[in-house]
Structures are given as structure tokens and as C-alpha cells.
Design a protein around this nucleic acid. Structure first.
Lengths: 124, 124
DNA sequence: TCGCTATGATTACACCTGTAATCGAATCGG
DNA sequence: CCGATTCGATTACAGGTGTAATCATAGCGA
């Protein structure tokens, strides 16, 4: 349940999360090759093995091969990572995080609007 | 310049960043022992060696031992880590990050107020 | 002066990570 | 039916990480 993903494992999970269908190792490799990642198929299979070991993906036998689908939710993983960072670097407060990021690079106008909307909804 | 810190290294750096004075390895070990971290002095010294190797801390000889002070800025490290996470998990947008964290656990009222203030200042 | 102690340096070592090669079995094409 | 291909599984291997023991040495206390 408490799964920690390495960065390379994340990349594989992102492909699975983005797909409505279970995928084969080859599918995943091809999708990744279209991005900036250019791993060998063997590498992708290694990562899948590790993800299987930590039960982050679920295998379904399809003849001689496997179809893989995510066994954990992206939102849960994202929540855990975000919270870790916020706790570790900002003492669990959100506003310094925002200040930091906004200071680093000005926010897009629609991003600001989205945040304001969030705050309004939160109060309701 | 482009320093990546491991989590254990971060803990050591936090102690140095929090101190107005350079510290000895023993000082750092004692400070950490007061927290939840309970490393042996040897461990702290190992971490200091690694931080020296990546030039994240600066040593000043003080007789037979060293006084250590940070050689990189906390804000720069924090900015880099925050941005990495935002890019990796939220496509570089801030609002989904906030939505995620707020959804995960309601924000403190004063945190909300701080964010509103930030937004107002940003527009000015 | 001489052993004890504190200190940085060196070495250790298991586990994680990125990145893959290889192996053995299954299958497909001919 | 046989060789080529395709899979998953196993193994590899260097570099990072957490955690520390050990070593050499320089000074402190008696």
C-alpha cells in the first residue's frame, strides 16, 4: 500500500495511468520512445519487474505475454509525494511553497485565476 | 553549482542553514540527536564528507578540527526541488498542486490568508 | 612522557537505481 | 518441424545512499 516509486518507475506508471487499456511491455516501450526517454525494451521490462514486485502494477496473462495495468492510483501517489515535499521543505505550510514557486517564475494569469477559484470554493 | 542532495544530506544542511555560526561535526550530531534523527557521530561525519565532496559545505580549519558552514543557499535548493516536483507531477502548473494538497488535507485558515495576500501582492 | 580521547579520513557493506545483456521457453512464419 | 523471434525471468554492474566501523593522528590530561 505504501509504495515508493523511483523516477524511472514513475515514467512507466505515467504511461499506464494515461492508458485506458492494459498495455504490454512493448506498448509501454514504444510510448516512452516517442517521448524524450529512450530506454531499451530490456530496461522497461526490468522496471516492470520491479513495479510488479512492489505490486504497483497488476499483470493479466494474455497468451504468452502479459498485459499490465496500474494497481495503485496516481492521485494517491501524487498526494504522498507532494505532501512529503511540503513537509520536508516548507514545514507543512502551503503558502511558502507557493511564494517560492511564484518568486522563481511568475505565475500564468489563468493559473492565478484557478487558484483564486480554489480558495473561493474552499470557503464555501 | 548544480547540487543534488540526498534526504540524509538535507537533514545535515538544514542544521547548518539554521545556524548563524559555523558548526563542528559534533555540534551537528548533537543538534540532530535532539530531533527524531538519531545517527551516530560517524554517520554525520560521513555525510559531511559527501557534502564536502559536492562542495555544498565549506570547511574552515579550527585547530585540529573543522568548522562547517553552508556553501549553497537553502532557497536555491528548495526552489530546484519544488520546481522538479511541480514539473514532474503537475505539468508545471501550480494550481493542480494546490488543489491536490488542499484536497488531501484542509488548509489552515492563516495559510489561506497568506496565500490570498500573496496573490494580491502578485497583482500589484 | 604516555596513554586516552577526539577528529577527520578511509573503508565497509547492504540496498536502491538506472541501465541493460543473457537465458530459457513459447510461438510464429515458412 | 525448424529456425527466428518474442517474452518474461534472471543476472549484471556501476554509481548513489544509509549507516556505520576502523584507522591514523594530533593534542589533552595525569
Amino acid at each position: 500500500m505504501d509504495v515508493r516509486l523511483s523516477e524511472a518507475e514513475w515514467e512507466v506508471m505515467e504511461v499506464l495511468w494515461a492508458s485506458p487499456q492494459p498495455l504490454t511491455a512493448t506498448d509501454i516501450d514504444e510510448t516512452l520512445s516517442k517521448g524524450d526517454r529512450n530506454w531499451s525494451l530490456a530496461t522497461v521490462k526490468s522496471l516492470l519487474s520491479r513495479l510488479l514486485a512492489k505490486q504497483a502494477v497488476a499483470p493479466a496473462k494474455d497468451g504468452r505475454r502479459f498485459l499490465y495495468s496500474p494497481a495503485i492510483e496516481r492521485s494517491a501517489c501524487v498526494a504522498r509525494e507532494s505532501r512529503r515535499l511540503m513537509d520536508r521543505l516548507f514545514g507543512g505550510r502551503l503558502s511558502p511553497l507557493i511564494a517560492q514557486l511564484a518568486d522563481d517564475e511568475p505565475l500564468a494569469a489563468d493559473d492565478v485565476a484557478a487558484i483564486e477559484k480554489l480558495l473561493r470554493e474552499m470557503k464555501a
